[in-house]
């Protein structure tokens, strides 16, 4: 297919994803404002009713429940911001850093549970995860600037170290709390709370706005950091911003994907898109489409069959990745034969 036609189709896909995201954000905002405004309450109720009616036509009553909407909204947003940030993280070879941030956030989750004795993705747990995630981001940034090019030994130490602290705190809490950590490790559909979904909404708006504002700068430092330095871009400031955004996205996405699998949403759609895309912009569009399809299929499967959503989302994404690699191989074989 010609590059221009392909790009137009991809734009259409991204637009559809965008519409979906706007609906979800409208729902989250309306639910948030429902206490203060009957109009907002009405909007939220109408949206759920509409989704319920549409779902019933398709043979499911899932969309008739508010809690499903929180999970779906979070998933839809994760499917956008994960690959969006991932396209920089992957090509900066920072995938391990994303993984590390998830594990430092786990320590925060553990503290949040311990002190808040929460039993789900309450906002207190998420905020604790956000704080430790951001501390982790600065720690990793410091370590990778101090050690030779992305030295992975100190990063591996931070990764396992924070996870170790998390498990200790969890096991302490378990003595008198009896909290199950499965939902945190593997993600759980019904465990997404209203405040958790709303936090994801805020995070997504901030991340999308900042990436849009700094698109050029992020692209330049990702592709050629040294030349960006020579062009007098403040490379270390952009690096810090990027790692902070990564931490924020990781914490938001943990709710659906779980700590163990959260990095997959940053990495797998981008890898799939990079196999077939020509331009960076195209890769970004495609990775968002791949991310969104994975989330929607994965979440649906998780609800229908009671699976862990993180696992099903990642399996779908990897299946798409394998197809993309096969297509890319065939294309290059055709090109070589021509």
């Amino acid at each position: 297919m010609k590059y221009d036609t392909r790009l137009r189709l991809e734009r259409l896909g991204v637009f559809a994803v965008g519409v979906l995201a706007v609906v979800m954000l409208a729902f989250l905002a309306a639910r948030g404002l429902a206490e203060y405004s009957s109009a907002a309450d009405l909007v939220a109720t109408r949206l759920v009713d509409g989704g319920c009616a549409l779902g019933s036509v398709a043979g499911t009553r899932l969309l008739c429940f508010n809690f499903v909407w929180y999970s779906v909204a979070t998933g839809v947003l994760v499917g956008i911001v994960g690959p969006l940030i991932g396209s920089y993280v992957v090509h900066r070879e920072m995938a391990l850093i994303g993984e590390t941030l998830a594990h430092t956030a786990f320590a925060g989750v553990a503290f949040g549970i311990f002190f808040g004795s929460a039993t789900n993705w309450g906002v207190s747990v998420l905020l604790a995860a956000l704080v430790t995630g951001i501390i982790g981001a600065f720690g990793v940034q410091y370590l990778s600037s101090r050690t030779a090019a992305h030295g992975d030994v100190p990063i591996a130490i931070v990764l396992t170290g924070s996870f170790a602290i998390g498990t200790i705190v969890i096991s302490l809490g378990r003595g008198f709390g009896g909290v199950s950590i499965d939902a945190y490790l593997f993600g759980q559909m019904a465990a997404v709370t209203q405040s958790g979904a709303q936090l994801m909404g805020v995070v997504s708006v901030v991340v999308i706005a900042l990436v849009a504002l700094n698109y050029k700068q992020f692209l330049f430092i990702t592709f050629d950091e040294q030349a960006a330095r020579v062009a007098r871009l403040n490379v270390s400031a952009y690096n810090t911003l990027l790692i902070l955004l990564t931490a924020v996205v990781v914490v938001g996405a943990m709710q659906i994907l779980g700590i163990i699998l959260v990095t997959a949403m940053l990495v797998v759609p981008v890898a799939a898109a990079s196999a077939v895309a020509d331009s960076f912009r195209e890769a970004q569009y495609l990775s968002i489409i791949v991310g969104e399809v994975s989330v929607l299929v994965g979440v649906t499967a998780a609800f229908l069959y009671g699976l862990a959503p993180g696992g099903s989302i990642v399996v779908v994404a990897i299946a798409i990745y394998l197809v993309a690699v096969a297509v890319a191989d065939r294309d290059s074989a055709v090109a070589a034969g021509a």
Partner: peptide, 11 residues
Amino acid sequence: AGSTMPVTVRE
């Protein structure tokens, strides 16, 4: 640099 990164000449 960016050997696996999809970037066009124009970009």
